[in-house]
Design a protein around this nucleic acid. Sequence first.
RNA 1: GGCGGCAUGGCCAAAUGGUAAGGCAGUGGCUUGCAAAGCCAUGUAUUCCCGGUUCGAUUCCGGGUGCCGCCUCCA
Length: 465
Amino acid sequence: MSIVFYNTLTKRKDEFVPLAAGKAGIYTCGPTVYNYAHIGNLRTFLFEDLLRRHLEYRGYAVTHVMNLTDVEDKIIRTCRETGESLESLTGRFAQAFLDDLDTLRILRPHVMPRATETIPDIVEFIKTLRERGHTYEVDGSIYFRLASFGNYGKLSGFDIDALKANADGRIDSDEYETEDARDFALWKAWDEDDGDVYWDTELGKGRPGWHIECSCMSRKHLGDSFDIHCGGVDLVFPHHENEIAQSEAATGKPFVNYWLHAGHLQVEGRKMAKSYGNTYTLRDLLDKGYDPAAIRWALSTTHYREPSNFTFNGLEAAAQSMRRIQDFRLRLLGADGDGSDLAAEAAACEKAFGEALDDDLNISAALAAVFEFVRETNKRIDDGCLGAPGAANALALLDRLDAVCALFPPKEADAVPQDVLDLLNERQRVRREKNFARADEIRDTLKAMGWVVEDTPDGPRVKTA
RNA sequence: GGCGGCAUGGCCAAAUGGUAAGGCAGUGGCUUGCAAAGCCAUGUAUUCCCGGUUCGAUUCCGGGUGCCGCCUCCA
């Protein structure tokens, strides 16, 4: 069974054939670290996490590179306004970003290079472009001359001449000293507003442009050509288009074989916008008391290319779905019947799950396979024909699938405090005495303490609410 | 204005040229002292509208409507 991905470059699903057998190089555009990531950003990073995990599940040795943009116009402006140093500001938000990844169980990329740590490589890269005649300089800034690159627009499908016509009408010529409005900066000369943010290099005193860092870091860690490049759909143009131009102009080789782009997230049916006040960060949701696992579920169970609508109603539904799986794990732990070891059923579920993800990461179909397995297995538990071997196989299956989608976290056995245990014992005693009024009273008390009681044939079970 | 994406039952969301998975919510039942959890059953789904191709379209083509994205630095 082969893996297929929808490739923005070819506009169809392509079978995934890596450059090196058994290996996969992935570059994903990372955050600009000057504030907290919002849930739209995180949706994209969750898709990329699923991509990486699934390739690893299929046995590929994945190298996942994600850059951190830590020098850029908005960062510099923020520093100027607040007086905080660039290192301090970007250091804080880079750490916050890593925390967010951990909270959502997004695997940390293998390499997370920062633009400011890559300056020498960027300088060399620009020098190469200059030697090959793709650049020109105006007032100390160095620009990429688009007209020198023949194949521009193949990713976004934009017609270069139409772009020019568009740009000429839209761009204030005072703002750009370029020969052509479509050209973009590789190196930006220092000016007063930059304060102490600059590097003195062979290219002059200044700082790198945005697009160049991705071309440079991907090349540094993955080579001139690599397998997969991801980002939000808004990066297709101009960012990724410009990366292609720079990289292929510099190396003369194909840059990337598979381009995967995530659709945008809406919130409550509207686009996310500061003016709507709906650009939530992960912290915002955690502050409202939502479970990180449910947030992951809500943000990652719509197919990555589709626009996704984040709603609080949907977040509650996600939490319920998650609870169903977790309750299933609890039931498995208590299964003590006898019967099938579930080997065949588990294998069928895993096969369907994997094949769904092979098809351009169809997470919905993959989850459907899991829920079918849950229902069938619950039936066996009800019928008393599931024993320890079957339960162990089912739990092992969930663990294997959790390694791929991180949606079925192992349910940690709740540490039940002694006072809760005491109340439970008392409740069992009064139940035997048919004092149900008192038993229900205790149940209410426990609920107020945050514990839900479920009576099973094997006695009561408590779980946190 | 140019280019592109999307439109499936109350909500979320798959799939397919042959009449539509799954989850959440609701309703009825089994079970339970009562619950909870679970299981079973249940939703006329004209698959946005109008045409076309076809024996047959939700799926292909054309038009329309609505929402969304990109058109120089926004995941």
